[in-house]
Amino acid sequence: MPVLKRRVLRWVVWVRRHPGLVAAFGFVSGVLSFTLIERHEGVGRVMAIGMLAGWLLLVLERVLSQAVATRFGHAPPPALLRYLTQFTHQESLFFALPFFVASTSWNSGQALFSIAVAAAALVAIIDPIYYRRLATRRWLFLGYHTFALFALLLVALPLILRLPAMASYQLALGIAVLLSFPTLAGLITLPRWWRPLLVLVLLAGLGAAGWFARLWVPPATLRLTEVAVTTAFDTVGRSPELALQRIGAAQLREHGLYAYTAIHAPLGLSERVRHVWLHEGREVDSIELEVKGGRAEGYRAWTRKLNFPERPEGRWQVRVLTADDRMIGTLRFQVDP
């Protein structure tokens, strides 16, 4: 056993000297899952399951340590346990990052969430910050821990369970809120009878804040691959005949307008989305669509609008939203007099 222990510690020391390798492995696995999920569905699913398995090991850390100590007479070295935690954070964040980068509407608040994921991933590979600044502050470390799992769940749940965006977000948020319990309980140390009630109220408030903040969280497994606004549409070939950026008001009233979107989604996923038509920032119409995943170029869907305001001139947008109102993308066009 001492020989095995020395080898394990030697391996931990070597890997800690090369943290970039771990980050590169996590990022490459995320990119592979991101690019192969349609044609090799099992690859992305296995990778996502592997990431969640790492979190399961962290949850069962004490039980497994006791089992190893009972079986071999020695518990795993603390350095190994610390590294496994850091390794799980690195793998999870770098795995999820490509999905968020691709699905983010960068001219919206979603950019802040994706930047936060990228920053958290960088923290995980910079040992002085991770161990001296982050790990030494228990409340901050547990918050970081929860955020990393939340980001991973937003990607893994649609891949593994084929859950729609809203259901995935609700489940991921619920798990994140439950994991926040130790952090909140540790912060509130007042020995009062109402302390447990205060913790529950804070948990409920955290859940509500997370739900209202969902508009800033990209739908990680959904993204636009092709968009067009057109007056003529090939319904047989399911493609626009001519993409427009500007159109005259008379032509608009005569032909109406199609909004075409090709939406990428994982194989087997069925998602309800909406085309929300806005004129000068004001919503004038909302049309629901159902998207089915699995096509590499994205599921082709469109809506047609025939009724326009009396004075339609100005800036128009067609926002593509999930069932819980998160932005997938936006089409823009101008109507001239």
Rank of each mutant, 00 (worst) to 15 (best):
P312T: 10
M327A: 11
Q86L: 08
T183N: 10
L242W: 11
V229A: 01
T322P: 06
L32V: 15
F95E: 05
Q245T: 15
W277Y: 14
Y169A: 06
L163R: 06
V117C: 12
V201P: 04
E313A: 11
L202W: 06
V117N: 13
V3Y: 13
T261S: 14
F150M: 08
H279T: 13
I160Y: 09
H264V: 15
L306C: 03
E280H: 12
P77E: 14
L203C: 02
D285M: 07
E38L: 04
F333S: 02
W316S: 04
A220E: 05
I49C: 13
G143C: 10
F212G: 03
G186I: 00
A243M: 08
L161S: 04
A262N: 05
H275K: 08
R138F: 08
L321M: 12
G109I: 01
R82N: 15
Y258Q: 01
D336L: 08
K305G: 01
Q251H: 01
L142T: 14
I125P: 03
A23P: 13
E310R: 13
R6I: 10
R133E: 09
I247W: 01
V68E: 12
W11N: 14
L81R: 15
V59L: 14
H18M: 08
G30F: 08
E38D: 14
W316H: 11
T104N: 07
E226N: 12
E310G: 10
I188S: 00
A75F: 11
Q66H: 13
A232R: 15
N307C: 06
D325P: 00
L267T: 15
L122S: 14
R162W: 07
R7I: 14
P164F: 08
L134G: 01
L134P: 01
R192K: 10
V123F: 12
A151H: 07
A48Y: 08
W106S: 04
L112D: 04
R192I: 00
E38N: 09
W302V: 10
P158C: 05
A249S: 11
V31F: 14
V3C: 03
T189F: 01
P128Q: 09
T88S: 14
T303E: 07
R311F: 09
R133T: 11
G294D: 11
T330K: 07
L122C: 13
S239L: 10
L112T: 03
L257K: 06
V318W: 08
V46Y: 12
V236Q: 13
L178R: 02
L179T: 00
L215Q: 12
L190T: 01
A176S: 11
W302D: 01
L149S: 04
T330A: 05
T183Q: 14
P337Y: 03
V276G: 00
F25I: 15
Q66S: 13
A24L: 15
I125N: 05
L52Q: 09
W211P: 02
E313C: 00
E61I: 02
V236T: 15
F333Q: 03
L206C: 07
G73F: 09
L178P: 00
L278N: 05
S108M: 07
F147N: 10
L222R: 02
Q317N: 09
H89T: 03
